[in-house]
């Protein structure tokens, strides 16, 4: 089939064979494609459409064009949520990644109690979110909480950590870092175990210091993992909602409202589904921007093994 001068039999069979191959491939992809279309693509399109309509009390839909978007632009809480989300991402993503990497390198070494340490770092990830939120609620409780008891040791007064707009975001960031770092560590650990120890040995023979080896060898080789983890961290920072429901309800005075939590409130507390759809479109745009940066730019600059 590769040679045009070949006998006529394979030549005649070639088109039908190619056609059959294509059909076969599509059929094999069909189940996954159906699920993807039904539960991902269709809802996205439906959401975009929904954001251009409003629903009357009697259930009829009226086309309003970009009205909802204009309302959103004038909505201070939306902006507040967006800015909060920005600070929240900035606070959680780099720190949790750095911490995960440090922990992974630490745990990857050959030492006693390694298994125990790995498990300990991983525990926050295994705990159910509600339990996590309750633990941290206890830490942050004014006067009785762990944090305030520690402050008491130094003669400092109680502090309403989650009730004060200046500290509530910091408290959430610390908790999320605590939860995510252990999870990301597992990915780094897996990646580190894939690296051949020969590379470090070769570098050490050439006289490279540990830091130099990390900078020029280990870290670049971990880049695919870092990218994966970073994307996940960014996405997670936009997806946080359950902890807010339990711990702060977005308060005080929307100081801890994040985008998805605001969407949740608009949709289920205020029952304004078309405005919720509008906000969702914004969230989708943000997340697709993240995906675009990954696939369009970063992937080309990273060495994959």
């Amino acid at each position: 089939m590769t040679d045009t001068t070949a006998s006529s039999i394979p030549e005649r069979r070639a088109p039908s064979q190619a056609w059959w191959n294509a059909v076969n491939a599509w059929l094999l992809l069909l189940p996954a494609a159906v699920l993807l279309v039904a539960f991902t693509h269709y809802p996205i399109l439906a959401t975009i459409r929904h954001s251009l309509f409003i629903t009357k009390r009697n259930g009829t839909e009226v086309f309003v064009g970009l009205d909802s978007y204009q309302a959103m632009e004038a909505d201070p809480i939306f902006w507040k949520a967006l800015i909060n989300n920005f600070w929240f991402a900035l606070g959680t993503v780099p720190t949790s990644i750095a911490l995960a990497l440090v922990m992974a390198i630490w745990v990857n070494r050959n030492m006693r109690g390694r298994g125990f340490l790995r498990l300990a770092y991983f525990t926050p990830t295994v705990l159910p979110m509600i339990a996590v939120a309750n633990i941290w609620l206890f830490f942050y409780t004014p006067d009785y909480g762990l944090l305030d008891q520690l402050r008491g040791l130094f003669g400092l007064g109680g502090w309403n950590w989650l009730g004060d707009p200046s500290t509530v975001m910091g408290c959430l960031i610390v908790m999320v870092i605590w939860k995510e770092a252990g999870f990301f560590m597992i990915f780094y650990l897996a990646a580190l175990q894939q690296l051949s120890p020969d590379l470090e040995e070769a570098a050490s023979i050439e006289g490279a210091s540990r830091w130099y080896t990390f900078r020029r060898i280990t870290f670049p080789l971990l880049m695919p993992t870092t990218l994966f983890v970073a994307i996940n961290a960014v996405i997670n920072s936009f997806k946080l909602v359950d902890h807010l429901v339990i711990m702060t309800k977005g308060g005080p005075n929307n100081a801890s409202t994040l985008l998805l939590y605001y969407i949740y409130e608009v949709a289920f507390t205020f029952q304004d589904s078309s405005y919720a759809a509008t906000l969702t479109v914004v969230l989708l745009l943000l997340l697709s921007a993240v995906a675009l940066v990954k696939f369009g730019y970063l992937d080309r600059r990273i060495h994959y093994q």
Binding site: D198, A202, A203
Partner: peptide, 26 residues
């Protein structure tokens, strides 16, 4: 000392040139 590893131990993300001059850079 310098050494050739049985498994080569080349740095996969560096070019041939960078691999060879790694020690000189260090």
């Amino acid at each position: 000392i310098s050494m050739v590893f049985q498994s080569y131990a080349l740095f996969p993300h560096l070019s041939v040139a960078e691999n060879i001059v790694f020690g000189l850079r260090v």
